[in-house]
Design a protein around this nucleic acid. Structure first.
Lengths: 175, 175
DNA sequence: AAATTACGTCAACAGTACTGACATAATCAC
DNA sequence: GTGATTATGTCAGTACTGTTGACGTAATTT
């Protein structure tokens, strides 16, 4: 059962005593696991995966963003993006337009089909969030947003605020 | 640039107007992206990936859990687990003991080495959480925990509470 | 004119997940 | 006890998503 040189088993659970916040680390894992599982059934119907979902989401959120910008947001490589982007273009969920200023750039836009799919994918996730806010008795929605935003690397927070506005109470409307 | 039958580009950003909570959907993506990137450098030094991290985490959190229980927590298949678990056992981070009641079962325990690695991996994540709580001015830590827990599928919330306790309230030594 | 940039693509590979099948040992039900 | 079920391990094959490095083309910048 145990190999000869194996260390001895530790039978006590690791806890927060080591000044490590295992509680939230674990909650984050469970929450994200179930959060991302929501759209999986829908995606499977299209033969798509989570990578397609992410691309579709950001193209809908920031229509006209370039390939380079998308790579920067997703933090993946060109080759990883190429495959899923090509599929989304071939299936007419996304179209590319030549950049107006710089004709080397490809601005990415959703089609009506792509927008509809993005909405369908977001719907169950949004329902989950809404229910969680209610079930947890959260009165101050902005506090959740502030926490999540603070979890993001400071130098990357700029990516978040690129979006239109109307996030929470006011949020963008004033800074 | 656009194929003949391509749909027309939609140039307006998708927003919360559709009653979809894109703000938190997106924040969750960014937060988790950076949260999971913390341990990557350490893992790379060992030739491990995120799957190893998750296994190591839960074996340290619930020493003596069986393979079946671990599969249920991680929501992956036996074959997916087999490879990473084998590596962790071969490198003496985890040991298996025959189940006392049911000898078919394999109880999983961390070794001192495995515990040390789990702590090292959790440290930067915990730092990020602590900083986020402070930076966001969160006074009610429990409210964040309640929200995250409410994001988990109700039937799976039992998995969370298996752990020792001292989740919220005052934690342990009330620091 | 030369260097750089934005994008696309090719080849090769790694990590993590899946399904389905099969084997073994132990336990449970009758 | 015999048979069914359970817990685990393993084999084979596959899919998706990610990586690096190299190369080509068109457009822009210097």
């Amino acid at each position: 059962m145990t190999s000869p040189a194996a260390g001895k088993p530790i039978r006590t659970a690791i806890t927060d005593e080591d000044d490590i916040d295992f509680a939230i680390i674990e909650l984050f894992f469970f929450a994200y696991r179930d959060f991302t599982s929501d759209p999986d059934q829908i995606l499977a119907d299209y033969g798509f995966g989570r990578a397609h979902h992410r691309v579709l989401h950001f193209v809908n959120r920031r229509p006209g963003l370039t390939v380079a910008e998308l790579l920067d947001v997703l933090k993946i490589t060109k080759q990883s993006l190429a495959r899923v982007l090509k599929q989304l273009i071939d299936t007419d969920h996304i179209v590319q337009l030549q950049g107006p200023r710089d004709r080397r750039q490809r601005e990415l836009y959703p089609t009506a089909k792509g927008r509809a799919l993005a909405l369908a994918l977001a719907r169950p996730q949004s329902r989950r969030i809404r229910a969680a806010l209610e079930d947890s008795g959260t009165t101050d929605r902005a506090s959740i947003e502030r926490f999540l935003e603070a979890m993001v690397n400071p130098e990357l927070r700029a990516q978040i605020d690129i979006v239109p506005a109307q996030t929470s109470g006011k949020k963008n409307g004033d800074h």
